[in-house]
């Protein structure tokens, strides 16, 4: 067990030095420094409130919240440093220490800063907004939050995905909600024996009657190719972007139903096999009268005889 033994002369020296230090402080300057810091931080807070009120109309709330925090803390730091400097305290040491800490933090938080700047660029670039249906980095879903560091997406199967903004910024982004309408493409295949014109008319009737298929841009129905199994008819329709899933699932089903009701055959894959040399198949009914005849016919009787010998 250790203990510190303090003699009387040492204590006196510490007390005297403290009193001398306190006597040398200009308390009036300290008072004004506190007033300056209080006023400065209050001003920074007011600027933060003002930013919130004015920018909320043009900026996402989460982004705005992050930016206003950065502005508030930056202003507060500047105010504190100015106050200390005006009180006659040398801040060059603090600045040097701050610089070194900054470099260390810079290396340590490289990814965070990259995400932060990517977040700011995403804000300016605006490739998507909250509620948009997007595909980014093989993730398909609805944007639920855009913050300075990350973007959160809810996928169609209900999974919550957080993507770092750096990744989002450099990835290919497909925004399916940017335009009010979106094109859907279907292929309906009909048998070669069917009347293609009639099939096209049936498909046109279905898409004309469908409430989600837009009149403009005009739908297109045409024979795309003569396929392996049937005639492939391609259908282009434009639907409201918000209801593309409903349209996608409903239209193809209605086309299939209408074609079936009209008796138009939708073929399944078929393959004809052609032999290079003609095959000769001879059938002699007498040879099928008994099992022995079949064995003889296939040549198995000769094999059996050889084995027995």
């Amino acid at each position: 067990m250790g203990c510190i033994i303090l003699n009387e002369s040492f204590l006196e020296r510490v007390v005297n030095q403290t009193i001398t230090a306190l006597m040398s402080i200009n308390w009036l300057q300290i008072f004004w420094m506190i007033i300056f810091i209080t006023a400065g931080i209050s001003l920074a807070y007011l600027i933060r409130l003002l930013m919130r009120r004015t920018l909320i109309k043009v900026m996402e709330y989460t982004t705005l919240k992050a930016i206003e925090k950065i502005v508030f803390y930056a202003l507060s730091t500047i105010v504190i440093l100015l106050a200390i400097s005006s009180a006659g305290i040398d801040i060059s040491g603090i600045a040097l220490a701050g610089g070194i800490i900054g470099i260390i933090l810079g290396f340590a938080t490289q990814t965070i800063i990259a995400n932060l700047f990517a977040g700011l660029f995403l804000y300016w670039d605006k490739p998507f907004s909250i509620g948009d249906f997007i595909e980014v980095d093989n993730t398909l879903g609805y944007v639920i939050e855009i913050s300075l560091l990350s973007t959160r997406i809810k996928t169609l199967d209900g999974v919550h995905v957080r993507l770092p903004n750096e990744k989002v910024f450099t990835a290919k982004i497909m925004n399916y909600s940017k335009h009010v309408a979106r094109r859907l493409t279907f292929i309906a295949s009909i048998s070669y024996r069917e009347d293609v014109q009639r099939a096209c008319e049936v498909i046109r009737r279905v898409i004309t009657e469908h409430p989600l298929v837009l009149v403009e841009p005009k739908p297109i129905v045409y024979v795309k190719e003569l396929g392996d199994s049937g005639v492939n008819i391609e259908v282009y329709v434009w639907v409201p972007s918000r209801l593309w899933l409903e349209a996608y699932t409903d239209i193809l089903w209605r086309i299939k139903k209408a074609l079936t009701e009209e008796g138009i055959e939708i073929p399944f894959p078929q393959r004809d096999v052609w032999f290079r040399t003609p095959l000769e198949i001879r059938v002699n009914m007498k040879e099928f009268e008994g099992v022995t005849d079949i064995i003889r016919h296939t040549g198995l009787d000769q094999e059996y005889a050889t084995e027995e010998a």
Partner: peptide, 11 residues
């Protein structure tokens, strides 16, 4: 009958 259309460009 319900039908919708687009007036103007996609964007």
């Amino acid at each position: 009958k319900i039908k919708y259309t687009l007036y103007g460009p996609l964007e």
